[in-house]
Nucleic acid binder design. Sequence first.
DNA 1: CTGCTATTAGTACCTAGTATTAAAAGTTCG
DNA 2: CGAACTTTTAATACTAGGTACTAATAGCAG
Lengths: 187, 187
Amino acid sequence: MKRSKKERQQLLKMTIEENPFITDEELADRFSVSVQTIRLDRLELSIPELRERIKHVASKQLDEEVRSLPIEEVIGEVIDIELDQSAISIFDVKTEHVFQRNQIARGHHLFAQANSLAVAVINNELALTADASIRYHRPVKLHERVIAKAKVLSTSEVRTTVEVNSYVGQEQVFSGTFKMYRSTKDK
Amino acid sequence: MKRSKKERQQLLKMTIEENPFITDEELADRFSVSVQTIRLDRLELSIPELRERIKHVASKQLDEEVRSLPIEEVIGEVIDIELDQSAISIFDVKTEHVFQRNQIARGHHLFAQANSLAVAVINNELALTADASIRYHRPVKLHERVIAKAKVLSTSEVRTTVEVNSYVGQEQVFSGTFKMYRSTKDK
DNA sequence: CTGCTATTAGTACCTAGTATTAAAAGTTCG
DNA sequence: CGAACTTTTAATACTAGGTACTAATAGCAG
């Protein structure tokens, strides 16, 4: 089938994005053009060669391995954070989070969102929850968006108290107070 | 400095593990031997060439991207239950439950085990957590088996209080008191 | 000094490219 | 229709980072 240059380049870009491991030769085959054409296309689109693409993906992987900060491990998506002060995350309730019978979110998901946000807000290599006191104000339903706001109330050498309030729209659905250990090194 | 063949190969292995992006030439420089020697070493140690190493790292990255598992639905296995009285469940801590940095189980999994057991023990079409007070006695580590025991403390028309204590072996790791609504129908 | 291992050197070949020049094919406009 | 332009293909020289193989040399042990 015939494709215009523009169409081909558009497809090329998508193809490479989907599978960065593809060679120019395979691409040439796939689009029924010469290898040179593919190379001109890549040049015009500023798409680097196979090895560079792979290298880039691999570096990302190494980054991830090294990093693995608590922020990656938060349940929900952190949209704002000021270390040792406050943090906000959003959590969309999907089918896998609710009881089938009544479409109400299972409590531990709201807890997890709040608790992990409390962990994340603490500017420390490691924070562990010591104890917590929580309250569910009203049930949260499927497809609702829960916004959790964490606020650090007090901090001492080894302990920090974090308050988390979660809302759906203007309505409060959850509140919790988390007392956290801030262990300095590994335990 | 002089190193024996064995010493060099040992170091070589570690060096490549730490930085898979290093070329034979750089390695040769670093160990003050010829490039050929490095290649013989890699051959003996079955270490693939630079590009293959990078490719391998990159594929791992793509795997990870696909993964991104949601918080799982299974929160321990109920092994005994007497409705409105008591229940026991076990929960094996796997890699997906721990912080990567220190292999300590994330608090919300212990909470989820206890909370879901509290829900299960209540002989009602629907039970919802109203509030909870919990305490983490000691961190739980990877591969430990947590046994949660729930006991119903009091029951009224609409509310039930459940106490849950969790253990690893003889040692208590978690305790919580859950006040539950026993709503008769849907809310 | 003879063997042996370890190391180094050299050559041909490979993949997946870049960079450049040139020719051929396709398209558009007057 | 044909000149002018764009697009595509082809061909060549060169590169990095290797493999595979052969051969020469270095170091040391008995």
